[in-house]
Design a protein around this nucleic acid. Structure first.
Lengths: 193, 193
DNA sequence: TGACACTGACTGGAAATTCAGTCAAACGGC
DNA sequence: GCCGTTTGACTGAATTTCCAGTCAGTGTCA
């Protein structure tokens, strides 16, 4: 069962997804979580603290739905696993939408907010390494530096496509197709190194 | 000589680069421009008006540095022109930084603000088409749909890398290198179609 | 003298943060 | 098992801070 703090963080993710980081009002968050504003300050130091912990919460949660399938499902081939991992972030479901827009917001806020940068950098690094590892399983002979570069490009592209999707620039299906194309191109590139 | 309004807009560009569109305080803008807050309201209707005009100001300025070289310089080969066009947005100069962060802010704000979407979509489309045209000059035999897809990926990637750069996730030199790698990969992909 | 550019001081409202306390459950001594 | 004490979770109601926007008036120049 979700603890009170978790309940607040879940609410924060929803509010950020709806209004943006800058649009998050502590009072609205309290209402969304069904608690008093004071409780927010009891559990979190201040508004910035809420933001920081929400970022952490979001990136943990993303890992969960990213990292894998149910126990009964057959294991995927490396290539499929790679593609699936990346495309999981481009789905029109409540959870993914919420996560993606909150993530995009936090990323954008970090441009102007020192405090958010460190956590964000760590979460990004983990994600890049995960993708690099998957790439390495598809192309075991490729040098580590090429894998890292490809992973950085694929994740950065995913973020770019994600924001375009959320801001209405492209449709989700198109975003997925572009992403698949990028995976193809990167794998082709790795084959030659 | 810069008129007072221009002086304010230049200051606004600096403040936006430092604090973001959403972090712009009219008082801080006044201080930066060396005028009173009241004067801001004398020249611009309200905060939104400042923002709108500043974004216009910034994008005009961007066109200047994007759209080509001096008259004396030799014309570039298509491949170089493509690369240069994309890499122009990844430079650590005041102008580019201001422009990129304002653009990123605008993009992020559009997720929550219907009003911004249309202009943004139009500007993005133009940009994608410009890049697609450049790709077409490097690979004239490639089908238009492939060119369009590659252009969309390259521009989305550029946005993704740009935000990572501005949020301290990667260094500018690394971003440029990743971008060059992506251009290689996309051109290699087009060669086969 | 009138139109224009400009300012310092102010206001109202919204939002963040704190405060003084309530309540229920856990604890420990008997 | 009962009872006084402590503690952690929680709240309603302030208090404080912040900030966009206004206003009454000053200097200046044509």
């Amino acid at each position: 069962m979700a603890s009170r703090s978790t309940q607040i963080l879940e609410a924060a993710a929803r509010v950020i997804a709806r209004r943006g980081v800058r649009g998050l009002r502590v009072e609205e968050l309290a209402a969304e979580a069904g608690v008093s504003t004071a409780l927010i300050y009891y559990h979190f130091k201040d508004r910035t603290g809420i933001l920081r912990q929400t970022l952490e919460f979001i990136s943990d949660r993303a890992e969960r739905y990213t990292s894998g399938r149910g126990p009964d499902e057959p294991p995927l081939a490396p290539r499929e696993e790679l593609e699936e991992t990346l495309l999981l972030e481009l789905q029109d479901t409540v959870e993914v939408r919420e996560n993606s827009s909150a993530w995009g917001e936090l990323r954008a806020s970090a441009v102007f907010d020192e405090v958010l940068r460190e956590d964000l950098a760590r979460a990004t690094l983990e994600w890049v390494q995960e993708v690099a590892a998957l790439l390495g399983r598809v192309q075991p002979m490729a040098p580590a530096s090429s894998l890292a570069a490809a992973a950085e490009r694929l994740t950065a592209l995913l973020e770019g496509l994600s924001v375009r999707w959320l801001s209405g620039g492209i449709r989700i299906g198109h975003a997925r197709e572009l992403m698949r194309g990028a995976v193809d191109a990167e794998l082709a590139g790795l084959r030659q190194d």
